[in-house]
Nucleic acid binder design. Structure first.
Length: 810
RNA sequence: GGUCGCUUGGCUCAGUGGUAGAGCAUUCCAUUCACAUUGGAAAGGUCAGUGGUUCGAUCCCACUAGCGACCACCA
C-alpha cells in the first residue's frame, strides 16, 4: 500500500477544490446563510504564525457550518493601505513618501501591494482554507475607496464627523496624528529631575519632572487641594527657573505623594496637561513643531532646532551648569508610544478630523451587550475600552498612501466644500471640482491633503461585504452578519470601530456573534509581535516541512481565546493522527473489498456493530454542540478519542476475526462491514474540518465510487446525523455491555502483558468472573471475544469483581 | 490602582458537588495478517494556600499569594 504523501496530495486537492469551485457561495441556495466577517490582514510584510493560528480556528468553523447545512459566506479581504503598508513599501523600495509626488508614490505602493496579495493568497490556499476567492476585496480598490468616501460624506453631513484644530495625539517620527487606540504603553528608562522654582517670597519650591525640556512651555503649577505644604500658594504666582511667572492651581489629579507634590503643567507634556490647560483656561505655549523639533522662539536658546531627545539632554546640561538641578533619580515608567514605531506620542495642535464617540458611550456599551461574545469574558475588554475613552476617534492621517478625505476648502474663507457623490472616488489633491464657495462666492478651492485612518475603512467591513460583489451575492448578505472572528489584540480597534460605524450607519449591531482567538506564543511569555513577526518560524516553511493538515491540527488545541504555544509535540501528534487515519482507512477498505450495495438497517447489525455506528453519530452530535459555540478544541478532543481509542484500538481489533475468517456472504461479516462502511465515512466527515486534505484524499479513493449519490467532495457532504431514536436505542441497549466487553478484553491484554506473553498468544480457556453478566449476555459477542483474546473456550461465572483467568495453550 | 482570566502528575492542558483525567516525557512488555508516525502496561498529583457553605469541595463562596492579559496612572 502506497504511503500518504502530503506534498503531492495537499496540492492536488487544493487544485481540485479551486477547479471545482467547491467553496463558492451560492446566492440562489435556500439554505440559511452563515456569513463570516473575515479579518482582512494588514499588508505589512509577511504573515506569521499568529495569523495562521487565528485564521485556522475560523476556517474550521466555516467548514463545519457548511456541512451543518448552512450557505456559508466566507470571503477574504486585504487591508492594503495605511501606515503599515506605506512603511513596507518605503522599506522595500528604499523610497520616502514624503519626498515624492503623492500620485507617483501611490502607484508604487499599488504595485508592491499586488505582489503581497498573491503571497497572502498562496499561503492561505496552501493551508487549505475554504475561502471563496471570488469574494476577495482590497481596502484600496476603487469600489472600496468610493464606498469609504461616501460614508465619510454621509457621516459628516449627519453630524457624526467634525473637523477641529485641537491638540491631538501625534507621532513625530511617522509625521502623523494617531488615534487613542494606536497608543501603546511601553516601559522607558527616565530620570526624575528636581528643579527649584521660587515663590513670591523667594523661597525655593522644588518641582520634580521627567521632562525638563518642557520648562519653557510651563504655563501653570498644580498642587493637590489637600496638600498642606502648598495650600498657601494656591492662586499665587511662582517663578520658573527661566524667569516666567506662572500661577498655582489646585486639582485632585496632583498626587501628594508623587514627586514633590507640585507639578508643572506644560503645553503639552501629556494628556493631563491638556486637561488642566482646559480646566484652568491656561495659555498655550507651543515650543515643539510637527517634526518633533524645538521652534526658533521656544524660549531657550539651547533647545532651538533640536529633537525632543537632544533637547532634553541640552536642557539638562544647561540646568546643571546653572546649578538648577538639585537631585536626579533614575526611574522606569510607562510611556504612551506609537504602536507601529515605538516613538513616544506627543500632543500637537493640528487640524484633524474626528468621529464622535465620546457622546455615544452608553449606546456603544448597549450594542456590545447585544452581541454574543465567545468567550464571554472578552466583552469586558470592550467595555473597559469604551468606558475609558478620552478622545473622539481621530480618523485623519498626515500620510500619503490611504483613502483621501474627500473635502475641499475655500481658499478665501476656509469653508468646507464637499464633492458630489457621483464624483467619488477622488483625490482632492489632483481632482478639481467646479464649485463656488457657497459662503463667499470665491472660486478657488484647495483639496484636503489628509488621508483616512485605514480603520475607517476596515471598521466598515460588514458593509463592504454587503455592498461589494453584488453579482455574486445578489444582496443576500445583510447586517448583522453572523460572525466576526478575530484575535484579542484588536478589540479596541477593529471590534470597537466596527460597532461604532454599524451604529451610525445601520443603528444595528454589526454581527450576531464575535469569536475572539488568543495568540500563539513562541515560548512562555514570548509573543509574536507586530514588529518582529515570529522570528525564524515562517508559516510557509512549517507547512512544507510538516503538512498543512498537521499545522492546522496543532493550531486548534487550545481553547478559544486562550494563548497557546507553538508546540512541536502537537505537530507530531497531528502527523501521527493523519498517518493513523490513512492506515485505518486502508484496513477498512481491504475489509470492504467484498462489500457491495451498501445499505444501513440497524436490525441487521450485531449489537456491537450498531453500537459503534450509533456511537459515531453520537460523537458527531456532541462535536456539533461544541462547534456551535465555536469550541473547536473540545470538539477535536472528543473526535480524537473516539477515532483512536474506540474505533482503532478497540473496535477494529474486535471485528478482525469476522473480517478475516468469515465468508463474504456471512451476515456476521456483512454486519461488521456495514458498520465499517458508515462509521468510517462519519469519521472522515467529522475530521474533515480539522484536516481537510487527508480526509478528502481518503474519501476520493473510496467513497466517491461506492457511496450512492456521493457528493463531489467530502467537504460538500453533510454533517453526520441520524434519527436520534436509532442512536439512543442502540446505545441504551448495548452501551453498558460493550464497555464490559472492552473491559474484559483489556483485562486479558493486561494479564498477557503481565505474564510477558504476546497479545497473540493462544489461550485454551478464558474464565471470566463478573458480578452481573451471564453467558446469555455475552453470547452475541462471543465470536469477537474469541478473536480478540485468542481464546478457544470462554466461560463466565459470578464473581465479586470483574476479573479474568487465562489458561495458555502449550 | 481597577477589571478579567489562570494556578490540577516532570511538561502542555482537559474536567466534575460523591474514590482525580488525557497527550507528551519516563520505565517495562509485545510485534511480522491497517499502522513502529504501532499496541499493551507501570509509575507519577493532599487539584496554589487559608477559611466558609455542605452529609461530602479540586469543583460553590470569601480572603490570601503567584502568574498573565486588558484598562487606568505615568509630574
Amino acid at each position: 500500500m502506497a504511503k500518504y504523501d502530503f506534498k503531492v496530495s495537499e496540492k492536488k486537492w487544493q487544485d481540485f477544490w479551486r477547479d471545482n469551485h467547491t467553496y463558492q457561495f451560492d446566492p440562489d441556495s435556500n439554505k440559511p446563510i452563515f456569513s463570516i466577517d473575515t479579518p482582512p490582514p494588514t499588508v505589512s510584510g509577511k504573515l506569521h504564525l499568529g495569523h495562521v493560528f487565528s485564521y485556522t480556528q475560523t476556517e474550521i468553523i466555516a467548514r463545519y457550518k457548511r456541512m451543518a447545512g448552512n450557505n456559508v459566506y466566507y470571503p477574504f479581504g486585504m487591508d492594503d493601505n495605511g501606515l503599515p503598508t506605506e512603511k513596507l513599501v518605503e522599506q522595500e523600495l528604499g523610497i520616502k513618501g514624503s519626498e515624492m509626488d503623492r500620485e507617483d508614490f501611490i502607484s508604487k505602493c499599488l504595485a508592491v501591494v499586488g505582489e503581497y496579495h498573491k503571497k497572502y493568497r498562496d499561503l492561505w490556499q496552501s493551508l487549505g482554507f475554504s475561502v471563496d476567492w471570488k469574494l476577495e476585496y482590497s481596502t484600496i480598490s476603487p469600489s472600496v475607496r468610493k464606498l469609504t468616501q461616501e460614508n465619510f460624506i454621509d457621516l459628516y453631513q449627519r453630524g457624526y464627523i467634525y473637523r477641529k484644530k485641537s491638540p491631538s495625539l501625534w507621532c513625530w517620527n511617522c509625521q502623523t496624528s494617531v488615534a487613542q487606540a494606536e497608543v501603546e504603553d511601553t516601559p522607558k528608562e527616565s530620570v526624575f529631575y528636581d528643579i527649584p522654582f521660587k515663590d513670591a517670597q523667594n523661597n525655593q519650591l522644588i518641582v520634580a519632572t521627567t521632562r525638563p525640556e518642557l520648562l519653557p512651555a510651563c504655563v501653570g503649577m498644580i498642587v493637590n487641594p489637600q496638600d498642606k505644604r502648598y495650600a498657601h500658594l494656591i492662586g499665587k504666582e511662582v517663578t520658573t527657573p527661566l524667569g516666567h511667572k506662572v500661577k498655582v492651581y489646585a486639582d485632585d489629579k496632583a498626587k501628594i505623594d508623587k514627586g514633590t507634590g507640585i507639578v508643572m503643567c506644560c503645553t503639552y507634556g501629556d494628556e493631563t496637561d491638556l486637561e488642566w490647560k482646559n480646566k484652568f483656561n491656561l495659555e498655550e505655549k507651543i515650543i515643539i513643531d510637527k517634526h518633533g523639533r524645538f521652534i526658533a522662539d521656544c524660549g531657550l536658546e539651547a533647545l532651538v532646532g533640536k529633537t525632543i531627545t537632544e533637547g532634553r539632554k541640552s536642557c539638562v546640561a544647561w540646568l546643571r551648569e546653572k546649578k538648577l538641578i538639585s537631585k536626579e533619580v533614575p526611574i522606569t515608567h510607562d510611556v504612551g508610544c506609537h504602536e507601529r514605531c515605538g516613538t513616544p506620542i506627543e500632543i500637537v495642535n493640528t487640524d484633524q478630523w474626528f468621529v464622535k464617540v465620546l457622546e455615544f458611550k452608553k449606546e456603544l456599551l448597549t450594542l456590545g451587550n447585544k452581541i454574543k461574545w465567545h468567550p464571554q469574558s472578552m466583552k469586558q475588554r470592550y467595555n473597559s475600552w469604551v468606558e475609558n475613552l478620552k478622545w473622539d476617534w481621530c480618523i485623519s492621517r498626515d500620510r500619503f498612501y490611504g483613502i483621501p478625505i474627500p473635502v475641499y476648502y475655500c481658499q478665501e474663507c476656509g469653508e468646507i466644500i464637499l464633492p458630489e457623490k457621483q464624483q467619488l472616488p477622488l483625490d482632492p489633491l489632483t481632482f478639481k471640482i467646479d464649485k463656488v464657495c457657497p459662503k463667499c462666492n470665491a472660486l478657488g478651492l484647495k483639496g484636503e491633503n489628509l488621508v483616512l485612518d485605514t480603520w475607517f475603512t476596515s471598521g466598515n467591513s460588514p458593509e463592504l461585504n454587503v455592498k461589494l460583489n453584488q453579482p455574486l451575492t445578489k444582496g443576500k448578505i445583510t447586517i448583522p452578519m453572523s460572525l466576526r472572528p478575530q484575535a484579542h489584540d484588536i478589540i479596541r480597534t477593529w471590534t470597537f470601530y466596527t460597532i461604532v460605524l454599524a451604529y451610525f450607519k445601520y443603528q444595528s449591531i454589526p454581527w450576531q456573534d464575535i469569536a475572539i482567538s488568543g495568540h500563539i506564543l513562541l515560548r512562555k511569555g514570548e509573543k509574536i509581535s507586530k514588529r518582529t513577526g515570529g522570528g525564524q518560524l515562517r508559516p510557509e516553511d512549517q507547512i512544507s516541512l510538516h503538512s498543512a493538515d498537521a499545522i492546522r491540527y496543532a493550531m486548534c488545541g487550545a481553547s478559544l481565546g486562550l494563548d497557546a504555544y507553538y508546540d512541536d509535540n502537537e505537530i507530531e501528534n497531528g502527523k501521527k493522527l493523519i498517518n493513523k487515519l490513512f492506515n485505518a482507512s486502508n484496513f477498512c477498505f481491504m475489509a470492504l473489498q467484498d462489500y457491495h450495495n451498501p445499505s444501513l438497517k440497524y436490525e441487521e447489525l450485531l449489537p456491537i456493530d450498531s453500537w459503534l455506528l450509533a456511537k459515531s453519530f453520537d460523537i458527531a452530535n456532541k462535536m456539533s454542540t461544541y462547534l456551535e459555540k465555536y469550541d473547536y478544541s473540545h470538539s477535536k478532543a472528543i473526535f480524537e478519542n473516539f477515532f483512536w481509542s474506540i474505533f482503532c484500538d478497540n473496535y477494529l481489533e474486535i471485528i478482525k476475526k469476522r473480517i478475516y475468517n468469515l465468508e463474504s456472504n456471512d451476515p456476521k461479516k456483512r454486519s461488521a462491514q456495514t458498520a465499517l462502511f458508515y462509521s468510517l465515512l462519519n469519521i472522515l466527515k467529522i475530521a474533515s474540518p480539522f484536516i481537510p486534505h487527508i480526509t478528502e484524499d481518503i474519501y476520493q479513493s473510496y467513497y466517491i465510487n461506492t457511496l450512492p449519490s456521493a457528493p463531489l467532495s467530502i467537504h460538500l457532504s453533510s454533517w453526520p446525523s441520524e434519527d436520534s431514536k436509532n442512536i439512543t436505542m442502540s446505545l441504551e441497549k448495548t452501551d453498558s455491555v460493550v464497555s464490559e466487553i472492552i473491559n474484559i478484553i483489556n483485562l486479558v491484554r493486561t494479564q498477557k502483558s503481565h505474564d510477558g506473553m504476546s497479545l497473540a498468544k493462544e489461550v485454551s480457556n478464558l474464565q471470566i468472573f463478573h458480578p452481573a453478566l451471564k453467558m446469555a449476555d455475552i453470547t452475541p459477542y462471543l465470536f469477537d471475544l474469541q478473536g480478540t483474546t485468542k481464546a478457544e473456550n470462554i466461560n463466565i461465572a459470578i464473581g465479586k469483581e470483574i476479573s479474568v483467568a487465562l489458561k495458555y495453550k502449550a
